[in-house]
Design a protein around this nucleic acid. Structure first.
Lengths: 163, 163
DNA sequence: GTTGAAAATCAATGCAC
DNA sequence: GTGCATTGATTTTCAAC
């Protein structure tokens, strides 16, 4: 489905969407029109999901990341749906995964400080019954990127056939 | 530093940067010119860091998330710098935190499948000496957003005074 | 802060090759 | 796939209020 040229374009757009189509074309070795058409197709195909602004966490008072590991004893469908909906609703929760292994769920929570995390924690356990919660604070964010690895796109022939 | 109007604008831009300035102005209750000026200031101030495209993970063959917990026994500055640089270099590593508590580092790694994770794992431990590595696979990504919580921006007077 | 409007840039399309 | 030319939209900058 995607070829090397698409990958080049996606690599640029994953880093910066402010650049003009003509500019991107120059970088990847394509003139404006075909470059523009490829971007359109990538959007229609849903490969490009959305274009967003990334903010500097410390400048919006959201510089502290906490990872919350959750273990539950409840496994009814009803509880599950309620739990998911409740957690998703918190804007402090920026990532939320159902995990394999020992821990059932993993949350990445973003707050201004420890006090705010405590407030979040109380809100969370107030709304839902959880068996075990364990919070770990990030001391430093060494890397954070929204850019997905693109070296796998072309590698796997099986994948191309599937999609 | 930031007021309610800025927060409204940021909320829009965190979700979608394709919208025209005039449009955003309408939504937040501002005409084009002052809305445009505010966005400029937010960019100059570094509140808006960048504008990027978000891709659909499954469509670029990067649908599997693995969390890697790392514990080390080495704490020399030299090892630390080498370790950081090596990990950051992997495009599969999309997030990388130095943690408090029991685990020293936490990585979020994105790969196409388990086999690719195994390949990554071998590359990782081949490059650096790590005491303990524990990998946990995400079964489901229930929430993932790049939008930071903005309800804290105005709340804390201390913060405003500091920045 | 507002409106309105002008100028520059760019997206988006069509056409010829 | 390329180049060119065009239309329309949007950004960006100006005035005047």
């Amino acid at each position: 489905m995607l070829d090397e040229m698409d990958v080049k374009i996606l690599k640029v757009l994953q880093q910066d969407t402010t650049r003009a189509v003509a500019d991107i074309g120059k970088e990847v070795g394509l003139s404006t029109t075909p470059c523009w058409r490829r971007i359109q197709k990538l959007e229609e195909a849903g490969v490009i999901q959305r274009r967003v602004a990334l903010l500097e966490p410390t400048k919006v008072n959201a510089g502290v990341t906490v990872f919350v590991q959750i273990k539950t004893d409840q496994h009814s469908l009803e509880w599950l749906e309620k739990f998911h909906a409740a957690v998703v609703d918190f804007e402090e929760v920026v990532e939320f995964y159902r995990m394999s292994g020992d821990i059932d769920y993993l949350l990445r929570v973003v707050v201004p400080d420890i006090a705010a995390y405590d407030a979040f924690y109380k809100k969370l356990i107030g709304r839902i019954e959880i068996a075990k919660v364990s919070s770990t604070f990030a001391m430093e964010q060494i890397k954070y990127t929204t850019a997905l690895p693109l070296d796998f796109v072309l590698e796997d022939a099986q994948h191309s056939k599937r999609t």
